[in-house]
């Protein structure tokens, strides 16, 4: 039952990566106190998705195909907006670290605090309905006349693997030198968000809300099959689609290039420091190290 395992793994990775980076960021910047907000957003997304999915599976009505694609597509694009805002908030926050350590009030953190839950909710919830429908279908298979629990078991195992990989990634990210941490997590989030954007565009193309579903920029399905483990990982982490439309490729490029340039300029811009105070990374790191 490798196939069901891989679906669980892919959906799990799609949901967890952004959350993992958010958590690493908060821990690294000494804001563990804000973690419950992330978990609340994740929990809300899981509960809403499972409940909505159950209603559509056993209730009297089914979602139309267009509606499901539109929900997945629009939520994905909204999620990209929030993640992008998050990346820049993280960057300015990182730049403000020394100021914060000097005891100044961090206004940015207060603004971000209220939205952390929403970002976590969108990151998990954007494809939550599809995952929930898949899991409930597996539950039906387990409860049906054929009574095979293998698909449900494999799918759950896949999701747990994704969680374990998320945890390993978190541990790895925390080892990044603090001076590079915010730059790296920002770059990773921007690339992941670009994939989510392309994914959302594809959903809207399937629903015929956006045109060009059949104009493919490239199709490497035979080299990188979606059914393979590496196809699953590429899709789960970067939302890489082996058959990418021109519109997806364009949206990806138009997002990733300017956002990366702006972001890198943003993090490299020297902080306007009071005269006589050197702003190297080392002292900041030395002072912050006990946090993690």
């Amino acid at each position: 039952m490798l196939a069901n395992y891989l679906i669980g793994l892919r959906e799990g990775l799609e949901a967890s990566l952004v959350v993992v980076i958010l958590i690493a960021y908060l821990v690294r910047s000494g804001r563990r106190l804000l973690l419950p907000r992330i978990w609340a957003g994740v929990a809300a997304a899981v509960v809403v998705s499972l409940a909505f999915g159950a209603l559509l599976t056993w209730g009297p009505r089914r979602l139309t195909f267009q509606a499901q694609e539109a929900i997945g597509g629009i939520l994905s694009i909204v999620a990209v907006g929030f993640v992008t805002w998050m990346v820049f908030w993280m960057a300015s926050h990182a730049r403000g670290l020394s100021a914060e350590l000097r005891g100044k009030i961090d206004v940015a953190a207060e603004a971000g605090r209220a939205s952390l839950m929403l970002v976590a909710f969108l990151a998990v919830g954007r494809e939550g309905l599809e995952t929930a429908l898949f899991l409930w279908a597996a539950t039906q298979a387990a409860a049906g006349s054929a009574a095979t629990t293998a698909p449900l078991f494999s799918a759950l195992l896949g999701i747990m693997t994704a969680a374990a990989m998320g945890f390993a990634f978190y541990k790895g990210v925390l080892r990044i030198n603090l001076s590079r941490f915010f730059t790296w997590t920002g770059v990773i989030l921007i690339v992941v968000a670009a994939g989510v954007l392309a994914y959302g565009v594809h959903d809207l193309q399937e629903a015929a809300i956006l045109p060009g579903l059949n104009s493919l920029a490239f199709d490497v399905s035979s080299t990188i099959p979606l059914t393979s483990w590496y196809g699953t990982l590429l899709k789960g982490i970067f939302n890489f689609s082996p058959a990418t439309t021109w519109l997806e490729a364009t949206a990806w490029t138009l997002y990733v290039v300017p956002t990366l340039i702006l972001f890198l300029r943003h993090v490299r811009r020297p902080i306007a420091a009071p005269a006589g105070e050197a702003h190297t990374d080392a002292p900041v790191e030395a002072r912050l190290q006990p946090v993690s």
């Binding site: 039952m1 196939a3 069901n4 679906i7 959906e11 089914r62 979602l63 139309t64 195909f65 694609e69 599809e130 429908l133 898949f134 279908a137 597996a138 039906q140 298979a141 049906g144 054929a146 095979t148 293998a150 698909p151 494999s154 799918a155 399937e206 629903a207 015929a208 579903l213 059949n214």
Partner: peptide, 22 residues
Amino acid sequence: GLRIVGEVENIGPGLTRDLVVG
């Protein structure tokens, strides 16, 4: 053969999923 009227994805082996479309 190009325009999608309806579609259902992620049907793993052993699963049954519904597509309702007008």
